[in-house]
Design a protein around this nucleic acid. Structure first.
Lengths: 228, 228
DNA sequence: ACCTGAACACCGTTCAAGT
DNA sequence: ACCTGAACACCGTTCAAGT
């Protein structure tokens, strides 16, 4: 193993090396000791730049989310929504071993929050009120999380394709399952991601259209704000 | 700590004790040594009943999913869909520390697969073709996974509410985020789960209606007119 | 002031030795 | 045949001692 360059250790270098280690050898291989070795340093030196291992995992999440390229702000809301979703898919597949962390830990830095703001903005611009915006935000985020958890698990070969038909499945007790078995096994993740997005964009459009047909009723419009 | 009963150790007792330990003290506290201690036995004795710790975690997932009560088969498809979703939410909140495992590991036993079969059956009965059934299946599963990951994280106090506004958020750079901050913090998970379900049921209904309005086209078969 | 060796309190798992 | 003590190869983290 060639000694790592003697550049001074920084938080950025630590996170970069951690991401590389996780990408190459999986999350289980990411130990403080191994990470130190990859940087040509003792494990204990890492604690100068990172408070703890959980904190390092949070930094990993922020780093990956920061790789998302935002859409130009002047395109239609549905293109912005699709853009963010596809970018999330892109960076997730670039770091499939890390994805379970993305699904589990919440980012706090502005860079990691920016894609979420873009998504919220797209939904608001679709014509949803605040409550509907939040609701559809959760639906999109939740759907993407679940879909990508399945796809990244398949990519790492770890947890099977998130739904595989056991060989000894009782076809009489599980008729639909048995019928769809082939379709499940042959699932084209890329196409399914696009079609799932179609379903959700259509749902947003339907909600917005319905709202437009209704007499306008803002959130809290009935209540009067107390004077500041 | 009272010595556990001297009943003979079985796989079932091991899984039960593991679930109780994870529920009470969190997943991090579930070590083979501690689990052995809870059963009044040495850690190494567990390996007689369970091949490894990852295998034990899989058994934990199966146990929790088996707690789902299936709907009666004779109710409408949308009630069956809602029933399964609400049951998944119920058992998830009964074991919030275990939920990250549910989102990450795929069940294989018939008992754990039964709720999925019910969900697939409901979608097929809604009038979707095979491809659409699978697509909406993923949408529902993905959405529920994401929503419950957020809710269980909030319940364990672990990862914040999956979306919290940092105190120092730049309101100018994150206008929608800042506007929705209060609504996010006050989110009523139970109501939001129901409304998210409404969105997805409506999406299924729309797809089914659209299909019905289309000239019938079976999977891989051109429509053939029955002789008049 | 920075880095680190040794140490502490743990892990999952193996296996030879006990009963 | 079953159980287990000791051991192996690791963990994350602390801290006093070195430079």
């Amino acid at each position: 193993m060639p000694a790592a360059e003697r550049r001074p250790l920084t938080r950025e270098r630590v996170v970069t090396a951690a991401l590389r280690l996780a990408d190459r050898r999986g999350l289980d291989a990411l130990s403080m000791r191994r990470l130190g070795a990859a940087l040509g340093v003792e494990a204990m030196s890492l604690y100068k730049h990172v408070p703890s291992k959980p904190a390092l995992l949070d930094l990993l999440v922020e780093r990956v989310l920061a790789e998302i390229v935002l859409p130009p702000p002047d395109v239609t809301w549905d293109r912005r929504l699709r853009h963010v979703a596809h970018e999330l898919r892109r960076v997730s597949l670039a770091h499939p071993h890390v994805f379970p962390l993305l699904a589990t830990r919440v980012p706090a830095s502005p860079q990691a929050l920016a894609p979420l703001e873009t998504l919220l903005g797209a939904l608001a611009d679709a014509g949803l009120d605040d409550g509907e915006t939040l609701r559809h935000f959760w639906t999109v985020i939740g759907w993407a999380t679940g879909a990508l958890l399945a796809e990244t698990a398949a990519a790492t070969g770890a947890g099977a394709a998130s739904l595989s038909i056991p060989a000894d499945l009782d076809a009489a007790a599980f008729p639909v399952f048995a019928r769809l078995g082939a379709a499940i096994a042959a699932c084209d993740f890329a196409e399914e991601f696009g079609r799932g997005l179609d379903v959700l964009v259509a749902a947003v459009r339907a909600a917005a259209t319905k709202r437009q047909a209704r007499p306008a009723r803002g959130v809290g419009a009935r209540r009067r704000r107390p004077p500041a």
